[in-house]
Design a binder for these strands. Sequence first.
DNA 1: CTTCTGACGAAAT
DNA 2: CATTTCGCCAGAA
Length: 118
Amino acid sequence: MTTGPSVNERIYMVIRQVPPGKVTTYGQVSKIVGTVSARQVGYALAAVREAMNVPWQRVVNSQGKVSLPGSDQQHMLEAEGVVFDAQGRIDLKRFGWSGPEDAWLEANGFDVTWFWSR
DNA sequence: CTTCTGACGAAAT
DNA sequence: CATTTCGCCAGAA
């Protein structure tokens, strides 16, 4: 039997696909990975360390707000070109990530069904 | 081994 | 709009 990537590793794989200047949400990542809840994505991000090369700052909540008030998350995103409004929210229509390509999903063992039902 | 705790989201109330 | 409920990974003590 094959021991594939752990749940957290799968979550990191997806987040690493988010390009600079774009953001994704916990809910979006959970749907792409397919087998995890948004909460588990939060758990995974909490375990991220600098050496993992995971662009954790590009993951915001469904309201378009940063998850870590008081951190440099907002500044890091602004440095990539992401704009925040007066309420500290990001316009997901403009900066939201479209998601990985079907080819990437299939090449990495992810299910593409989430894409069909969007 | 057990218990605790953390970067969320959607629906119901 | 505020609050509650459930979902159930991984590391530390």
